[in-house]
Amino acid sequence: MNTIERIVTPFDVPPGYSREDFLRRMQLRNRRVRLRRLWRGAAGILAILLVWQAASRILGLELLLPEPLTVLRNVVTTLTVSDSHWLYGPNIYVHLWHSFLRAMAGFVSAALVAIPLGLALGRITTLREFVMPGIQGVYPIPGIAWIPLAILWFGLGDAAVVFVVFATVFFPLLFSAEAGARLISPTVLDAGRCFGARGVTLFFRVVLPATIPYIITGLRISLGGAWRMIVAGEMLASQDGIGYLLMESRFQFRAVDLMTAMILVAIVGYATEKLIVGTIEKRTIEKWEVQPS
């Protein structure tokens, strides 16, 4: 709908209509499409909830598989910080906030190292030939496999968790930046050089923006990865955070709290992705309408 408003070329209208009519019709159609998507999505989610409800009714094991409504009520009481049955130290917001901080620390530090390095690897063949084999050798080690070593190195606590997040998200960020920089159209690069950009200027004015679509893909993948890893890391190496909460609910034999924590992980993960990657996307590739080729 943005495109329609931005195009300035005049266009013809059939007799009896005005330009405004056309815009109105477009708006109406867009609204209808949005509504349709909304209710279909809602119906799909409702179906999942119904299956869940049916399963817990049939099994009748409230302790292991509580009903959706029970869990939902528990989400609300947890979020309203009612401490009627709270068994997990600080309140939920402190847990979530600590998890968020750790995830961001790992994610941002990995992005600051991996993106510039990836761009350099994509553009400088010598560097790529020296460095890539080593990186590809380390890459198959799953993030979780780093946890014991991280605990050994940093002890139980923040540093170990941040480290495993870093070790997980570093690779997708690096590979996407590297591929993007390597695959830049040669003529665009020539154009940059012919119009006076060289060295660092060429890097920031041409290579970086031309690679943004790839970098965004990398950010999206790695942000999801960061959030997954934070849960795993905190289960084993932390005394608070959402992962700790999950593990602790198992010890307390409270499936309802476990599921509540899982739902909160989903919500916060979704929101962070929308907020961070969505914002970057809106200010770059949506405006330029470019896609990774």
């Binding site: 159209s185 003529t187 020539d190 154009a191 012919c194 119009f195 923006p209 943004i212 330029w288 470019v290």
Partner: peptide, 11 residues
Amino acid sequence: VVFQDPALFAW
């Protein structure tokens, strides 16, 4: 220089 493919900066 004007290239065969316009090679504009998309951003």
